[in-house]
């Protein structure tokens, strides 16, 4: 049984360029490559700390987003949420990748700018799109 709940910081059908500017978060739950649930939650008026808290309490273990200031990256680590950067990627394409278990197309925060994921030394990776 392969289960995963992903939170995606959304801006107009795309992954938000910045986590703190996202006004909506899409929660998608996958089980064996199928979408079990999909729910959009408004984050309007919430500060980034509150957004992170609501993502954490939803049970999501991964967060797909754009750039994130260091303060919130440390907080996300503390909450046990893995960050994946896919800024600007279309949500539908992203979900297809995640469904197929191709989350490796999205570069996790910890691997940014290292090894095979290095792309011109840019820490903000957009891949797969």
């Amino acid at each position: 049984m392969n289960k995963m709940k992903v939170a995606i910081a959304v801006f107009k059908e795309h992954v938000s360029l910045r986590f703190d500017c996202a006004e909506e978060v899409l929660f998608v739950e996958f089980e064996n490559g199928e979408i079990v649930s999909r729910k959009m939650a408004s984050m309007e008026g919430l500060n980034p700390l509150q957004k992170l808290r609501s993502i954490s309490t939803s049970g999501a273990t991964r967060l797909v987003c754009g750039a994130m200031p260091g303060f919130y990256r440390r907080m996300t680590d503390f909450l046990g949420i893995r960050i994946m950067h896919a800024e600007g990627m279309a949500i539908d394409i992203l979900i297809e990748h995640l469904k197929r278990g191709k989350s490796n197309l999205i570069v996790p925060c910890s691997q940014r700018g290292r090894g095979k994921h290095r792309r011109d030394g840019c820490p903000w990776m957009v891949t797969g799109g």
Partner: peptide
């Protein structure tokens, strides 16, 4: 840039 105004 990842500016706060990039999106909107």
């Amino acid at each position: 840039f990842h500016a706060s105004i990039c999106q909107n």
